[in-house]
Design a binder for these strands. Sequence first.
RNA 1: GGAGAGAUGGCGGAGCGGUUGAACGCGGCGGUCUUGAAAACCGCUGGCCCUUCACGGGGCUCGUGGGUUCGAAUCCCACUCUCUCCUCCA
Length: 432
Amino acid sequence: MLNLDLLRREPDRVRRAAGRRGIGTEFVERILQLDRDRRAAITAVETLKAEKNALSAAVAKAADKRAAAAELRPKITQLDAAIRVAGTPLPAFDEWIAAELAEIPNLLDDSVPDGSDESANRLVRAGGTPPELGFAAKPHWEIGERLGIVDVERAVRLSGTRFAILRGPGARLSRALVSFFLDRAARNGYVEINPPVLVARSTMWATGQLTKFSDQMYAFAGDDPDDVLYLIPTAEVPLTAMHRDEILAADRLPLQYAAYTPCFRKEAGAAGRDTRGLIRMHQFEKVELVWLTTPQRSFDDLETLTRNATALYEELGIAYRVMLLSAGDTGFNAAKTYDVEAWFAGAGAYREISSCSNCTDFQARRTGIRFRPEATAKPEFVHTLNGSGGAVGRTFAAVLENYQRADGGVTVPEVLRPYAGFASIEPDGSTR
RNA sequence: GGAGAGAUGGCGGAGCGGUUGAACGCGGCGGUCUUGAAAACCGCUGGCCCUUCACGGGGCUCGUGGGUUCGAAUCCCACUCUCUCCUCCA
């Protein structure tokens, strides 16, 4: 949610940002007008209330309270009526303004390049080199099925499309990735969290997901319509909302959290995209990294977070590149986003594997997470960052594609061997 | 699912319906003392909103929403949440 104060002070800045994202700017004047009307109403109500309070105080001070009260009653009755009339439009103003404000995406950072879509994303850096396989690379689903470690057919029987079963060494390799990711997160100072994956509606709203992923989320309706629980589309939701409505001590910042969770997305609107393989699932696992930090350092922290993500692929020996998303491609909550893309030999392309964003104070304002810069200072909103520190399914797929051998077997990247307990998956599905 | 208890500031914990936005303690900040620190002592210390260049002024806020009253943290109603016990369960 944007700061109304900012919109009052720098409406042009808000208009410019909205323009860069390719959305209309009429809302700015609409909100400013509502805000003017609202403030006029507040002033009117409060003047009347002050008058009334003064009368009550006079009663409290009077020697004969009963008599004083009786004498002032008509005047107070009159004021009550005036207060009611003057205050009537207030809740409506608040609602309208909040509703308008809730629909505005975050302001973009100046470093975000112009552009309406991913074609304008800017390459920031790249690491590693795609492997020279010397034979026709297969897509991961073919490798996985041939080895008997990925079973899509039976998963479809259980749950429908966009589900997969990992089996034997496949399941084990996947678990090895999880341990590897979590160990690296711990090494980088993240506190591991095991959060609920089912959260209340208010939590979803607070983290800005109801606008962003509203048609993406699975929900369980209870008997009561308000009694709804959502399956998280990312652990960003519980990790960020954990400190909801808190005022954090400045010396506790930054807080760094890592959580390994399943994630659930309907993938509405992705019909026909990535229908094969493990890239786009209704249920997938990842390790999510979240920072709660200060405005002074949040953009530096975004660099650190992004490096935490890319370091994983360096260790795994998988080529990657970092893209700075253009204005039009940057998500609702984010002021700036880097996508980390890993090389997929079977696809012969880089595919998104982590998305690291600085949401500045945008989510914190909705979530009510603040900190006190100095012991005596007023609380300020924290800045929140999030990014995946290991997408399990996609990385699993990338390992199969980049480490496939001519004979159909797969070599396990060095760093994963201690976790997996084997160094390769042989063509017959055995491990070695 | 059944029964009971409770919700007050960063934390703990008081609070006859009337200058109580809230005693007291802890914590935090500032000061005195000290070479420095500790201890001791003194002072300050919730949040949100409107208004003001500023000083300041005003309003709201004791889980949430209503009600009674000239006046509610204190009385009434509803809701939400938390805790304890029982039941069930990985």
